[in-house]
């Protein structure tokens, strides 16, 4: 799973998708996850990092992570072609 290459994310969490002109706002934890995804980190790596850093249970994070990915897909921010 890869974040679409063209997508720019600012430090303030502003996301602009030049392919369709949509803009989004992301919270800091969301930015962290996207940045790790950009570095090709696996779900396991990301989970490990987050669980070490934040007070969150494994199950809760897993649920939230896949919910988040689902929304990113919904907004076409994840390059699904590369997966195939």
């Amino acid at each position: 799973m890869k974040i679409n290459k063209n997508i720019a994310i600012s430090d303030t969490g502003f996301v602009f998708n030049p392919l369709n002109g949509e803009s989004y706002s992301i919270n800091p934890i969301g930015i962290e996850i996207i940045n790790m995804m950009k570095e090709d980190k696996s779900f396991e790596d990301i989970t490990h990092t987050m669980l070490t850093k934040y007070t969150v249970e494994d199950a809760t994070f897993e649920k939230d992570y896949f919910d988040f990915i689902g929304i990113l897909k919904h907004h076409n921010l994840i390059d699904t072609n590369e997966q195939a």
């Binding site: 600012s10 303030t12 969490g13 502003f14 602009f16 803009s23 706002s25």
Partner: peptide
């Protein structure tokens, strides 16, 4: 420029 829109929307 989108920078301006970004600034007013996020901060």
């Amino acid at each position: 420029d989108i920078e301006e829109f970004q600034q007013i929307s996020t901060i």
